[in-house]
Write a protein that binds this DNA or RNA. Sequence first.
RNA 1: UGUCCGAUGGUGUAAUUGGCAACACGUCUGAUUUUGGUUCAGAAGAGUCCAGGUUCGAGCCCUGGUCGGACAGCCA
Length: 574
Amino acid sequence: MTENKEVPARTTGEEGKKSLNFIESIIEEDLKNNKNNGVVLTRFPPEPNGYLHIGHAKSICLNFGLAQRYNGKTNLRFDDTNPEKEEVEYVDSIMEDVRWLGFQWEGEPRYASDYFQQLYDWAVNIIKNGYAYVDDQPAELISQQRGTPTQAGIESPYRNRSVEENLDLFIRMKNGEFKEGEKVLRAKIGMTSPNMHMRDPIMYRILKREHHRTGNNWCIYPMYDFAHGQSDYIEGITHSVCTLEFEVHRPLYEWYLENVYTEGDIKPRQIEFARLNLSYTIMSKRKLLELVQKNIVNGWDDPRMPTISGLRRRGFTSASIRKFADTIGVAKRDNVIDVAVLEHSLREDLNQTAARVMAVLNPLKIVITNYPEDKDEWVKIENNPEDETMGTREMPFSREIYIEQDDFMEDAPKKFFRLSPGNEVRLKAAYIIKCEEVIKNTDGNITELRCTYDPDSRSGSGTEASQRKVKGTLHWVSAKHAIDVEVRLYDRLFNDEAPDGHKEKDYKEFINPESLKILKNCKVEPSLKDAQAESKYQFQRLGYFCVDKKDSKPGNLVFNRTVPLKDSWGKMNK
RNA sequence: UGUCCGAUGGUGUAAUUGGCAACACGUCUGAUUUUGGUUCAGAAGAGUCCAGGUUCGAGCCCUGGUCGGACAGCCA
């Protein structure tokens, strides 16, 4: 794939001044003040409990892009503090997706679980300093005592145990002497804070689960708040960029940091931005998992999924996703991006890079009655009018061809520029033909067209007839040379702009029943015989398609429709 | 009757010491075109949530509202 590390500079106004997003402004300010000695180290910190989606792609492009822009580095760190939900399958897929997007993290991937010992030692220290205690109460009670956003909580009866007792209990928690849920370690901050997260938050819970990396070494696991900021600190992250819902966690992030911080170290700063929402899809990992588990889609990489692996299989290029991330910008207000923006960056890229090819999805046979029965000829056609360096190829032409059923109408309206009885049309790169006769079966359905061709009109021959202007140009494929392939037409997975935005309705009610249409017996030109998995083409006049990497086999090709071409004719008829 | 955050065309994002609201997507014209694609030319569409205030001048500053979002997992 293309190594495109360049982030095009955003510009505004005629002078082409670069405009910064608010995070870039913060970093430039820090750089100006020589904070962190000019170092910029960001991190992308996924939890390996699902596949990455386009929303993560925004975050990846942001974090890695910031580092590239300011001469920094980016760590990949798995936030794996909950063995109940996390699996190596997810770890592997995440690494693959980040690499595919074109980014390389600094050094080896990191894991929060690598820091369990350090985290434990810090917890012991915090206990010794009198700022943490072991609570024996069950979860429900702790929850009740936490109060509500508008009402202060009350203190746990175990809150004032001695340091010695807390230490003893915590060590025994670690040693597995207690059952799950029997005890937790809590930070001793206060129960009256207006910020719920500051009301003696839980630091450690007991989980007797095998962890995908540490196995059974631990039976106590740190909570997100205690693990995340400290991991940032250990790695020397300068700017810890996360989504808006962690904004209320920031005081706690800073509280923990103060309790472990050593003067002179880099002090990471948490900065929050608004997560991506895309119209006509969902971004919740939980719901995506549900679609997979209930077989509503065919796995995480189903081409209809907004996952990175799904988009990849659908035929998206990583460059188009990077471009998209750059286009939508970064800010703090909630947003819903129109999928049209994503599709636009895709088409923009594919238009430049995808080879043009002839394919007929719904074939209609044409017999050219005045063309010799035994003759074949090869016509020359350019591979990409946008890029001459992609060259030309030869395509066979013969007496019987297929055109698209949609390209013929028996009773054509005035604006129909395609084939109809008595009318002429250009076969791209070949001849002008005229429809002489419509053949129907006993049901009255059109089965075949009889046409004549103008032998002098061959494209590129330079004759007067070859220069004639006819209204329509059709794509076609020679019947006897065509290859039969399967084509999967994908459409949006949901019919509603905001499938999970309805309080009374489940998002699954909006699933588009026509999100996948499978066409067998499609006809493609013979040059596609050895098309490689994942290669991308423009099926002339139809859209961009790619060879499915899982189901396509030599001799039994399967193409996915990535995105149709813009269609002003189709739009006109709506 | 809590804390924090946000509010700029239909949708996003800009406007960097306060200086006549810009860019992209989308929409609509027209031109070109052997892809009804691309490209090109152009248009419509906001007076910046509201009300006050400071100022010669406010999207930017101040005050007070309104609306929207996040937070009550031993999830992240």
